[in-house]
């Protein structure tokens, strides 16, 4: 048990670390995909089969592809290597402090755990029951998520459409991003 968990944790954390520190942007996107695959395997190990497959279908198959596509579409003549922001040290310090706080809370917290005999086997996750719950008790969040996805789809399409050609005689908006 612990060997597979250690390997998967290594894949997840290694992929995440590489995604966050890699200078080459496309490599960062691909490392993110590797990290998400590792996470999906962790989900499978936890017994959430449906969630693990959905994770790969949605995250690796769609979100990661979208990210690398966007990295490609926003390339410039500038070098493909990213530099760190103006004050990287404070960001890293904040993240480290947060991790220390969370680790302390996790190790000293008393979580109500399941009794040992039921913790040994994963709770059953049948897709039929999932669908049943979604359409009976959680039908309102389901419809809200449907509305959200529709709005996101239409909004993303409208935002990413090429702007109409500006009138050459019109100079009302300022040029450049800095005010």
């Amino acid at each position: 048990m612990t060997l597979t968990f250690a390997l998967l944790a290594g894949l997840v954390l290694g992929g995440a670390f590489a995604a966050v520190t890699c200078r080459n942007r496309v490599h960062a996107g691909l490392f993110l995909a590797a990290c998400l695959v590792g996470l999906a395997l962790v989900f499978l190990r936890l017994g959430a089969e449906f969630l693990g497959f959905i994770q790969i279908l949605v995250y690796v198959g769609a979100v990661a592809v979208l990210i690398v596509f966007a990295i490609l579409l926003t390339r410039d003549a500038e070098s493909p290597r990213d530099r760190l922001a103006n004050a990287p040290a404070s960001g890293i310090l904040i993240a480290l402090a947060l991790f220390a706080l969370l680790a302390w809370a996790i190790s000293t917290g008393k979580f109500p755990a399941a009794p040992a005999e039921t913790a040994a086997v994963a709770p059953a996750l049948s897709v039929k029951a999932l669908g049943d719950r979604l359409f009976r008790e959680y039908v309102l969040p389901l419809q809200a998520v449907g509305l959200l996805l529709t709005a996101a789809l239409i909004g993303a399409a409208v935002i990413a459409l090429p702007a109409p050609k500006p009138d050459p005689l019109d100079d009302s908006d300022a040029s450049g991003p800095a005010s």
Partner: peptide
């Protein structure tokens, strides 16, 4: 928690907007 901290570090220290988004996804 470690994954969250790595994502947060990425979102706070990166310069390119898409790499910040990668941190958020993590």
């Amino acid at each position: 928690a470690a994954l969250f901290a790595i994502g947060l570090a990425g979102a706070l220290t990166r310069r390119h907007a898409i790499l910040v988004l990668i941190g958020i996804e993590l």
